[in-house]
Nucleic acid binder design. Structure first.
Lengths: 351, 351
DNA sequence: TTGGCAATCTGTAACGTTTCAGTATATTGA
DNA sequence: TCAATATACTGAAACGTTACAGATTGCCAA
């Protein structure tokens, strides 16, 4: 009853997974010929090629990944490297879906490689390279001088970064235009009469913090508004801390009448802080916030939002890495996503 | 200058990744002996074993995954199977971190295997089993009669489900006690004088919808409150739909004075719908909601929340799968997470 | 007729690992 | 002394794939 024990060499009717040997036996060809026929090598006769591919399709042949990987070193794996405490929730979810969307009809698998605060961010990357665990890597939280990007360039492994670096080295990236976001936000606030603005920045050390700050200050002087420093917290701080600092700030004489916030969750905290101080959103102060899922307008209708699409980022990053693996020039695999306009509350319910 | 071309057999000083052959050469032993020494096989002399392990550590030997996988079939991979449109954002993020936390100090990698609405949920699971791509699988959105669980049991691949099944088959799972959540929520609402309650349920077809509904109705009759049917939407519906249906419901004569909601995002929509109808949360109606990240209390202070920890779920599921792979009895790898008490708003800011 | 060449196809080896079936040496029992 | 046995180690084979270096055939030019 047990059909496990295979009959040595002739796998004629075995229920095991078909291999090249199976195909070779069925077609009467050699294993080498089958292998080449399946990958459209030139020295295989047209009819033979068709015949092999037909049989392969019929019996549902799928190349054994371990075999390929052992022989060629090709893993067919893309690794997404994530920080386990500081990524935005929606970022993780959306970027994964974006990546999987792109690799769905390729042989690639997505593996998630985490690292925590206590680790050197280089650790996971080093691991991947040393063990040859992936053909391509996606990293987030890019820094102006990013040791991970440098390391991967030195070791010749294709990668893409979410966010840009600034080392004079060229590599694929996808980024959101945070300069445009921040400057548009300032212009919008100025347009509704706000003149004393505070910025809740991205975390220190990341490239896009610089872009955001630059957009903010440039637009500030353009419209003739002034900045109220708000440097004690960033969007990486806890909700409670941001809330407390905001409340402190709003109880001061020289409080801001406008905020620009780089993340939705932080915006909740800012608003809570504003209200803790007894002030009212839309009357005493206005807030423009980035968001990645369309929820802020439910929170307070007075909020202004700019949408950032992380799913798109995931897709672009995946495309970039695959492109590099496929031999495209790294410099041609860079993309910058422009923010849409600043959106006010729009009533979508009712009848 | 190019040191790529290796010198055939004697890898004495090559900068390539060390293999068993490298270790064999360095120790003067055979490849077989080295292999066994590294896995503490009994027929290796104590000193030899120590010596081999020391050298292995020194030169940073790491077994080649492809070699192991090809020879033994062991992949050292856990696959997390996710629906690309209906998982909660926070679920994806947190469960991934929970899983990676547990497998961090094991040789396991986590791969994410997505499937979309248009696909049979069985597809990704079938793929994993047929291609032998993973040693263990984690699936979410368990159904009472779940073809995926049945399939994996039949094919003997270890797995764990987020949520329970109800097929008389025993397998590892982790679940949140949604019966307790719903009944506690009802009791809480009754305790503050609410008598006409509506339930926004989990999606039709999932096991925990039944648990939630049962907890809700049992507690209703226990406290002598009545149900206002709210069956046209579930938490899988869009924010806009839930909002619209809620507003419709709240404009009726026989509107509810209390809601129980199974997801935080849906709760935002419910509140928006309530306010669309011109009613006020906390005065005209109260809402108890589950949430997985502590943000709802920032949204409206009048909300009551119960926390569900998805990171814990991820850890438990990973532990369960690893346990099963390690030979533990599937029946011993089931866990149920009890909800905490219903939490009112607590002011945490200010001084 | 013969040598050359293009077009197809094939066997062998190798990637790194584990398992199987040994071998060599020392130790024991009688 | 010899055989039996335990201890410690080893080579060869195999997992499925691809690359290398041929083989075989037919055809054409000289």
């Amino acid at each position: 009853m047990d059909r496990r024990a295979s009959e040595k060499d002739d796998d004629t009717s075995a229920k095991e997974r078909p291999t090249l040997k199976t195909l070779a036996f069925m077609t009467g060809l050699g294993v080498t010929t089958v292998s080449r026929a399946l990958k459209d090598a030139p020295e295989i006769g047209a009819e033979t090629r068709r015949r092999v591919q037909l049989v392969a399709k019929q019996i549902g042949y799928r190349p054994n990944r371990a075999g390929v990987r052992l022989r060629t070193g090709k893993t067919n794996v893309i690794s997404l490297v994530l920080n386990t405490e500081h990524e935005l929730m929606s970022f993780v979810s959306d970027i994964i879906y974006g990546v999987t969307e792109v690799i769905a009809d390729t042989p690639y698998h997505l593996i998630v490689t985490p690292y925590s605060r206590s680790q050197d961010p280089l650790d996971p990357v080093r691991y991947l390279v040393e063990t040859g665990s992936a053909d391509g890597v996606i990293i987030s939280r890019a820094q102006p001088n990013d040791p991970r990007a440098r390391y991967m360039l030195e070791h010749g492994i294709p990668f893409a970064t979410h966010g840009r670096t600034d080392m004079g080295l060229v590599h694929p990236y996808h980024d959101f235009d945070n300069y445009a976001f921040a400057s548009e936000a300032v212009r919008h606030l100025a347009g509704i009469g706000r003149r004393r603005l505070a910025l809740l920045t991205p975390p220190i050390g990341l490239t896009y913090r610089g872009h955001t700050v630059d957009g903010f200050t440039d637009a500030l002087s353009e419209v003739g508004a002034s900045e109220v420093p708000f440097n004690t917290v960033t969007i990486d701080h806890s909700i409670e801390q941001i809330r407390m600092r905001t409340a402190q700030l709003m109880r001061r004489e020289d409080r801001p009448d406008g905020f620009v916030s780089s993340a939705a969750a932080a915006t909740l905290a800012i608003v809570a802080g504003i209200e803790d101080a007894g002030l009212k959103l839309g009357r005493d102060v206005d807030v423009v916030s980035k968001q990645s899922s369309e929820l802020l307008h439910l929170f307070r209708r007075e909020l202004f939002v700019v949408n950032e699409n992380f799913r798109l980022a995931g897709s672009e990053l995946a495309r970039a890495v695959l492109g590099w693996i496929g031999g495209a020039a790294p410099g041609s695999l860079q993309s910058l996503s422009k923010p849409g306009e600043v959106l006010p509350y729009r009533h979508s319910g009712g009848q």
